[in-house]
Structures are given as C-alpha cells and as structure tokens.
Amino acid sequence: MMAELSREARAGSNGRQGLLRWGLVGLLLLPLALGGYPLYLATEAALLGLAAVALSLLLGHGGVPSLGQAAFLGLGAYTVGLALKAGLPLGLALLLAPLAAALLALLTGLLVFRTHGIFILMLTLAFGQMVYSAAHKWTGLTGGDDGLSLSGLSIHPVLLHLVAVGVLLAAVGGLRALLQTPYGKTLEAIRQNEEKIRSLGVPTFYYKLSLYLLTAALTGLAGSGLALHRSFISPHDLFWLTSATLMVMVLLGGSRGLWGAVFGALLYTFVQAWVSSFTDLWGLFVGSLLVLTVLFAREGLWPLLERRLGGGRGNA
C-alpha cells in the first residue's frame, strides 16, 4: 500500500494526486494526536470507509448497485460478537466474520446475478431486510432489539484505530492493484458491455459473483471491526437505511477509484456528527449536500478535489 502511494507520488504527473491521498491518510491519522471523541469518530469513519470501499468496488467498477450491504456488515458484527461470547479467541472470531459474510453472499448472489440494474438493487435490498428480520426475531441468539453487549472486551482505541486505518489502506491498495490485473480489466469490460463480453465466451456470472463474495467479506470484516469498536451490536446496523448511508458515502465521494469512498465515509461521518449536534434537521443538511454534490460535482467530491487541487484529470 505504502509502496503504491509513494510510487504514485514519484510518478510526476500523478504527484499532486499522490499528495492529496497522503493528505487524506493524514486526516485519518490526525485524530490519534487528539484522542478521545475525535479518535472514536475517526475509527468509525475508517471502518465504515472499509465497507464503503467494498461497495465502491462493487458499484463503480463492477456495476452492481447493491442496497443490501448492511446485511454483510451486521453479519460480520454478530459473528464476531457471538464467537467471542462462545469463548473463541479474537483472531479466529475475526477470521470467521468475513467468511460468514462471504457465505451469505454466495447464497444470495446465485439469485442476485440472474437480474440486472435496478432489480439487483431491489433483490439485494430484499435479502438484506430478510437478514435484518432474522436478527430481530432470533432473540435467543442475537438478543433481538435489546442488542448484544460485548462486555469486558478492551482493545486500546489507538491500536484499534491503527489497525482499522491499516486494513482500510491495504484494502484500497490491494483492490486498486486487483483492478489492474486481467481479472480487474475483465470486470471493467463487463461493466461497460456485458453482452459483448459474454458472447466472447467469458463466464461473466462467475466474475460478478466472485467480486460480490470478495466485497461481502470485506464488508463483514468492517462489521466485525465496528462491533469491537462500539462494544455493542444491534439489529439497527442491518437495517436498509445503513445500506443507503453506505451508498450515500460512496456516491458523495465518487464511486470510482476507491479513494472517493474513503473520502466520502470520512466526510459523511464527521459532517453528520457535527451537524446533528446542533440541529435535529441534519437530514435537511445531508440532503442538500447530496443534491449540491450531484449538481456541481457529478463524479463525486473526490474527483473534483483531484481536478482542482491535484491538477490531474481525476480518476477515470
């Protein structure tokens, strides 16, 4: 990851863009110096950022508009919570969370990728809400809407934040590298013209399904991080509005290039927290921000920043 950053930083034309990315990383790390609440919020932003990056890959590069990501986020959270309650070591619990999310993605993906466009949106939404209902109803396991407390778990907030940011940056770097591989290029081609690629004999279904599994696993990992971070899990995390919030983060920052998702998550988390402290009409503010973004920065705010400050042409 760092290698990618510095390579791009050295690469002349991309130099200023590299600087901008370092700036973003700096913003993510800055709260370490402040501690307390800013750090808490920044960890939340980094973890949601990981989920947003996964969605950004799925949406912006795979052309799969999923409105059911909250299910993977919540499943990851509950898996780690229940595994810890069952006495499993933390490392194993953190391994199980993405696996559980990927398993769910496999089960639902087989149906999801029989459809296209808006229907994918609705089908993922439907599966997401079914998982939400299950978490809500299965009180014996999940505690229902009373939620699940992870008492007695203490991870140092600085450590947790460093790990969260590290995983986030590794994910961005790794996934951006993935996009350069033949696999990534094929995904891109499928997004642009699936019929054509299929006619060339490429099993597009499996390309999309594998991408779905990968992003689900990452989202599950993000969810497990959120569970450790908040020491509390509630079915609300699985509600479809959580999926919508992730989508807002991605589109706000820009759905392509993955850095936009990181920026979007950071911006949304801090701005929403800040605004909602002094007005209950924060929805009005967030809504206006969305409309203005689309009107004045169609590709999202991050590409706009890259054009204005970075001097580059933005991420294609």
Partner: peptide, 19 residues
C-alpha cells in the same frame, strides 16, 4: 445518469421529510 439521479432523489427525500 442513473446513480446520480438516485442520489438526487435520496437527497430530495431527506430535504422534504425534514422540512
């Protein structure tokens, strides 16, 4: 531009509901 339109209508929904 489907996604942008979706985003605008989500934003509009937030604005209307809060107003």
């Amino acid at each position: 531009r489907e996604l942008e339109q979706v985003l605008v209508t989500i934003g509009l929904g937030f604005i209307l509901a809060d107003l």
